[in-house]
Design a protein around this nucleic acid. Structure first.
Lengths: 235, 235
DNA sequence: TGAAGTTCCTATGTATACATAGAATTCGTG
DNA sequence: CACGAATTCTATGTATACATAGGAACTTCA
């Protein structure tokens, strides 16, 4: 979303980040990171005390989380971090397919070729990157973020970008739920490369189809990983 | 305070509709109806006094409207009902195409044939319905709502349904902006009929393509109507 | 008369006090 | 011992009081 009060690193300016904004960001990160596990009950007094804001801004934060679909409110019995069932993951991917295929198609029509040529170079190096442990993994995910950002810039459609952002929010939780395995990540890098090349070439049809294939593979991998980890004892 | 327990004349059941919910619904309807025109500035004190709730629930209501995209917040200078430019309408239809085509495709796969057979009968009668003035028009729009509902039920995907609901929210404003003309409505009824038949027959590809065609025609009509009304003096 | 500084006002952000409903617990009775 | 009702407790919903920032207008100086 929009950071109204962006940093200000140069000046020692005390940034008056709104309390509701702080609470929202913290809770959101904690939910996405899994620190607040699905099913966790959030109590206003409890959370406001923990985060260090009053109940009013905390309520605003929770309201935004509910709008995001990360939290569900019960009548009089507190709020709860939403669960991510296998079914809901399938449902999410159904929407994701619709939006990302369309986005890829549009991006191929409107893209700045230079941007996606640069991305192509990076994705070519991605498989090698993935052999450098944790740091390489983080750099890989940064590359994915860069790709998403380039796509958003290319489609230049606030409604579509917003809808995609909503999907990606839940995706972050899923990604954490199903720890990617190296083989899958290497395959994903190749799939991304194909998408990037199609977009760079302005081939909207190929971009859409490559995205379809990628998401199909991604969903299969995610579902398999979750079912496997559910069968194993928790680490 | 005063009328927290409004209505409930029939049953003795006292429904304590939350003040924030009342404020949200009222503001939402007023925005969609155009009573609160685009560009209107909403002041907390002003609106809370007008609607008859305190500032706190009104803030919650406005926050939800912002999440809906119906209201935009400025730093310290009040909130504003968002404008609907021609560009934003095109952008909205871009997302709408992605979602509704996908929804039509899925609905054709999962539908209950009986439901869409019944809708087919109603859409067959729609052109005749449209010759009965204001009442017929209202019944036609009710039919559209029924169709949307049937589609939602068929796709059975909360994420997709939610995304569609967001799109339809803005669509209601656009529909009001560009008053449909009878010729267009009759054409739209035929287009809907084709979609309904495709879904009823389980022909997902045809359902998607028919939806694409329908939305293309719809957008053309909307843009033309708005440009025409912009050229004319306001009534 | 114009421009700049200052002051005041307004609108939101936050905290807290109060109301209320629902659930759980406890006490009483059969 | 079990069942039920009442009470208490807790958590949210609402209202209001207060803090603060940003803008507009007024005044003053050149």
């Amino acid at each position: 979303m929009s950071s109204v009060y962006t940093e200000t690193p140069t000046t020692g300016n005390t940034t008056p980040v709104r309390a509701s904004e702080r609470a929202y960001r913290q809770l959101r990160v904690e939910i996405l990171d899994g620190f607040l596990a699905p099913g966790t009950v959030l109590l206003e007094v409890e959370q406001s005390a923990r985060i260090g804001v009053s109940r009013t801004p905390l309520r605003a934060a929770v309201a935004r989380l509910i709008a995001d679909g990360l939290v569900a409110g019960r009548p009089g019995r507190g709020f709860m971090v939403t669960e991510m069932s296998l079914d809901s993951i399938r449902e999410l991917y159904e929407v994701r397919r619709a939006l990302e295929e369309h986005a890829a198609r549009i991006a191929a029509e409107r893209r700045d070729p230079a941007v996606f040529d640069a991305l192509r170079t990076q994705f070519l190096a991605a498989p090698e990157l993935l052999q450098h442990g944790e740091a390489g993994l983080r750099r890989y995910y940064d590359l994915i973020d860069e790709f998403d950002q380039a796509l958003d810039d290319a489609v230049a459609n606030p409604f579509l970008v917003g809808a995609l952002a909503g999907v990606r929010t839940h995706l972050a939780r899923i990604r954490r739920l199903a720890r990617d395995n190296p083989a899958r990540l290497r395959a994903a890098a190749v799939e991304h490369l194909l998408i990037v090349e199609a977009v760079a070439a302005g081939d909207s049809s190929l971009a859409a189809h490559a995205t379809h294939v990628h998401l199909n593979q991604s969903l299969r991998s995610v579902l398999a990983a979750i079912q496997a980890s559910a069968a194993e004892p928790v680490d």
